Simulated scan of single mutants.
Amino acid sequence: MKQRSSINPDMVVDEIMRKWPVTVAVMLAYRMLCVGCPIGAFHTVAEACREHGIDETRFILDLESAVREER
C-alpha cells in the first residue's frame, strides 16, 4: 500500500517542492510563480492558492497525485 505524502494547506510551498521535487511540475502547470520565488519559503499552500486564485482542494489533490505517481 502506498503511503500518502500528507500535503496539507498549512505546509509551506517551498518545503513541499524540496521534499517532493515532482511537485514543481504541478506548480508550473497551475502557472504558480512559487518556483524560485523568495516568498515561497513563507507562503503556505492555502495562502498561495488564495493569492493565485486556485482551488485549494483540487491543487492539493494534484500535488498528492504527482507524489504517488513518482513512487
Rank of each mutant, 00 (worst) to 15 (best):
G40D: 06
L28H: 05
T44G: 07
A66D: 02
I60V: 11
E51L: 15
A48L: 13
R58M: 07
C37Y: 04
L28Y: 01
E51R: 15
L61H: 11
E47L: 06
V67I: 15
F42R: 15
F59V: 01
M32C: 14
R58K: 14
M27N: 10
R31W: 00
C49Q: 01
E47I: 06
S65G: 00
I39Y: 10
V45R: 02
E51Y: 14
G40C: 11
I54K: 11
A48K: 02
L33W: 03
Y30D: 04
H43V: 08
G53Y: 08
E64G: 08
D55C: 07
A46V: 04
E64H: 10
E56D: 01
R31V: 00
I54Q: 11
E47K: 13
A48F: 03
L33G: 11
D55Y: 05
I54R: 10
H52K: 08
I39L: 15
E64Y: 03
V26A: 09
A46W: 05
T57G: 03
V45E: 02
E47A: 12
V26P: 02
I54C: 09
E47V: 07
E64L: 01
D62E: 14
A48G: 05
L63P: 05
V35N: 10
A41Q: 07
C34A: 14
Y30S: 03
G40Y: 06
R58G: 10
M27E: 10
M32Q: 11
R31K: 14
A41G: 12
I39D: 07
G53N: 09
R58V: 10
H52S: 07
M27S: 12
M27V: 11
I39E: 06
C37V: 03
A46L: 08
T44R: 06
R31H: 14
R50C: 11
L61I: 00
C49P: 01
G40K: 06
M27L: 10
I39T: 13
L63T: 03
F42E: 12
V35G: 07
A29S: 15
V67Q: 05
P38H: 03
C34F: 08
I54W: 10
D62S: 08
R50N: 14
T57Y: 07
E51A: 14
H52T: 01
E47T: 09
H43F: 06
E47F: 09
H52Y: 14
G36H: 08
I39V: 14
L33V: 05
A66S: 11
D62N: 12
I54Y: 10
L63R: 04
